[in-house]
Design a protein around this nucleic acid. Structure first.
Length: 508
RNA sequence: GGCGUGUUGGUCAAUCGGUUAAGACGCCUCCCUUUCACGGAGGAAUGACGGGUUCGACUCCCGUACAUGCUACCA
């Protein structure tokens, strides 16, 4: 790219299912880079594989980006000047470029059937070398290089299924500079003649990515490390098309690995280890299989973005909590790690907890609604906000709200009597009986007044405050947890407080 | 198998030839809190291995090991 060109980056998912953590991180790095340099972020849909098309996947991806607060500047829904934004809508164009490459001698037409390819691989495979369609084997195959010109034309005229393959040069070294890894080089003899145009007329990723990036004036191309081995094909294509001067700078991002063992993090690992891998809930329309997302597990989008940003990138500061605007400010591709990072769900939850603590109670109340929708209680917004303020420092996920706060809304079904029994005797029992009487007679009802009555009653009964505090908590809450016991009493109200104490006395 | 890429505590990681090798998560101890949590203080725990280069290597080079990715008319 030329220096004064406007930065343009793209995220190019194929709409085949749920949006993976690693995908979101790739989006994020694209977005941060674009914003940092005042450039554009483009969403392009790579739907060239018709057999893998999944209905609804494109909309789903949009929703995930929206939830994360990442809006593309251009997308299928919001076209800019470089459309179309779906590869399937460019079908005719790709064929032209493929034709040009064939005419130039940089590509050729191949008629081999699946069976013939299979046969070739078995035949030429050795212990030391995997057989591939390349300079060593293409001479034995049925293609426009081995067939007479008339024969090829006759086959074409007869409508014989065929693909277009790149003709990888012999004895060349392709070198390029990756923004993250520095100089990377490949021996062209070891790269196979990748299919460029499929028999159905659709381009493969290899052709499409080059053509689209060129047409869409992409200046920086970020993608996962798994693409590195095919980079020489793309480099050569840029060269053969005569677009070398406009080729984007490449950056191959490290992988996100599974927490245990090694290898790429997959949806299966999440299922197995009990954490989400997709950004949002995804239901496969074919199998109806449902997969949980970070959103529905109770993550805040800003926490999700923050934790993903830190997985493979680090600004070199001690600060760990960054708003998306701060990330934009600090982000630099040079500080992206080379090696893959294992995903740590515990740390992810810590990030979320930090953001929950910082978040506004009214907003949290709104966000927590879906998590209590199935509970048969109706709670006013302000009441919910107040209670969230009381319990938010002890939850890591929004989904944990109910287990930490249900006693504010419904009487505990059971109480931890085991925690009470050792302290239970006639003295303490009569203390609680007299406490309920005094509480019932009280007109003012707030945590100060409740505590004052409690103190009086304790003194009158001649017991220590500590002996009665825990029992009171267990009676109201059901267990040994939760915020201050008097504020709980205030919130649940006088009648309910008295009722819970009386019920506890009756069963002890 | 071949090729590519990678390797600092259990995990995320700072360091860009000279530090007692930061910090965070998790774990442990203590304090705070008459519960739990939050918060605070402290602790255990790290440069894969072997060679170079250098006055001096976590840092640069080479080799080995290990890991991982690719090796489809999938992306």
């Amino acid at each position: 790219m030329t220096n004064n060109q406007k930065v343009r980056v793209r995220f190019a998912p194929s709409p085949t299912g749920g949006l993976h953590l690693g995908g979101v991180r790739t989006v994020l790095y694209n977005y941060l880079f674009a914003r940092h340099h005042g450039g554009d972020f483009v969403l392009r849909i790579e739907d060239t594989d018709q057999s893998r098309f999944v209905a609804g996947a494109e909309e789903y991806i949009l929703q995930c980006l929206h939830w994360c607060g990442i809006q593309p500047d251009e997308s299928p829904e919001k076209p800019g000047a470089y459309g179309p934004y779906r590869q399937s809508e460019r079908k005719a164009g790709y064929a032209q470029y493929a034709k040009q490459l064939v005419a130039q001698g940089n590509a050729y037409i191949a008629f081999d059937t699946t069976e013939e390819l299979e046969e070739m691989r078995n035949k030429y495979k050795t212990e030391h070398h995997n057989a591939q369609y390349d300079s060593r084997t293409r001479g034995y195959m049925r293609n426009s290089l081995t067939l007479a010109k008339e024969e090829t034309e006759a086959l074409l005229a007869a409508g014989t299924p065929h693909v277009v393959r790149i003709k990888m040069p012999v004895n060349e070294t392709v070198i390029f500079k990756d923004m993250i890894r520095g100089e990377v080089s490949f021996d062209t003899n070891l790269v196979d003649d990748k299919v460029l145009l499929k028999a159905d007329g659709m381009p493969t990723y290899h052709l499409a990515v080059v053509v689209d990036d060129y047409l869409m004036k992409i200046t920086h191309a970020f993608r996962g490390e798994e693409w590195l081995p095919s980079a020489p094909v793309h480099l050569l294509l840029w060269q053969y098309m005569g677009w070398e001067a406009e080729m984007p700078q490449w950056a191959h991002l490290p992988l996100i690995l599974k927490p245990d063992g090694n290898g790429k993090l997959s949806k299966r690992d999440g299922d197995r280890l009990g954490f989400p891998v997709f950004a949002m809930d995804w239901t496969d329309p074919r199998t109806m299989e449902q997969t949980i997302g970070f959103k529905e597990r109770g993550f805040l989008p800003e926490a999700f973005v923050n934790l993903l940003a830190m997985l493979g990138w680090n600004p070199g500061l001690e600060q760990e909590l960054f708003s998306i605007d701060e990330l934009v400010q600090y982000f630099s591709i040079e500080r992206v790690h080379h090696g893959g990072a294992k995903f740590d769900y515990e740390k992810a939850k810590w990030f979320n907890q930090q953001y929950i603590q910082k978040a506004d109670n009214a907003r949290l109340a709104e966000l927590v609604r879906p998590f209590i929708a199935d509970k048969e209680v109706s709670i006013a917004d302000d009441k919910l906000a107040t209670i969230i303020g009381l319990v938010k420092e002890r939850i890591h996920l929004l989904s944990e709200f109910w287990e930490q706060a249900s006693f504010f809304f419904v009487r505990p079904e059971t109480i931890d009597t085991a925690a009470l029994q050792p302290k239970w005797n006639d003295t303490i029992k009569s203390f609680f009986v007299s406490l309920t009487q005094k509480l019932s007679a009280e007109n003012e009802w707030n945590q100060e007044s409740i505590e004052a009555i409690f103190n009086e009653t304790v003194a009158a009964a001649g017991i220590k405050k500590g002996e009665a505090m825990l029992p009171l908590r267990v009676m109201l809450v059901g267990g040994k947890f939760g915020p201050g016991v008097f504020i709980i009493a205030e919130q649940i109200g006088k009648d309910e407080t008295v009722a819970r104490i009386e019920k506890a006395i009756s069963i002890l």
